[in-house]
């Protein structure tokens, strides 16, 4: 019995591992969102409006990344311009 148990439990196939992995991802995501300044979504919209005056880009072409390091914060915008622009200029 003991031996059988040993072999059965040596590789626990429970779902706790799945729970932990899901939580780690979720909590990291929640924390990142929590530390962002509340004006970020509006800033993103307004910048997009300005860009749209000149170039036709859509919402998904703009990504905003906010990182907090010890002494400073980094606000990073990444705007993917459509191919046509480069040919036009």
């Amino acid at each position: 019995m003991g031996l059988l148990d040993y072999f059965r439990n040596s590789r626990p196939d429970g779902t706790a591992n799945v729970a932990k992995e899901r939580l780690q991802i979720l909590v990291a995501h929640d924390r990142a969102a929590r530390n962002r300044p509340s004006y970020l979504p509006q800033l993103q919209r307004e910048i997009l409006d300005v860009i749209r005056k000149y170039v036709d880009v859509d919402m998904s072409a703009v990504s905003v990344n906010y990182e907090q390091e010890e002494a400073h914060e980094v606000l990073e915008f990444n705007i993917i311009l459509p191919d046509a622009i480069r040919h036009a200029t």
């Binding site: 626990p12 779902t15 706790a16 932990k20």
Partner: peptide, 10 residues
């Protein structure tokens, strides 16, 4: 211990 529940360490 049977891996069904998150441990303290988790």
């Amino acid at each position: 211990e049977s891996g069904e529940m998150l441990s303290v360490k988790d």
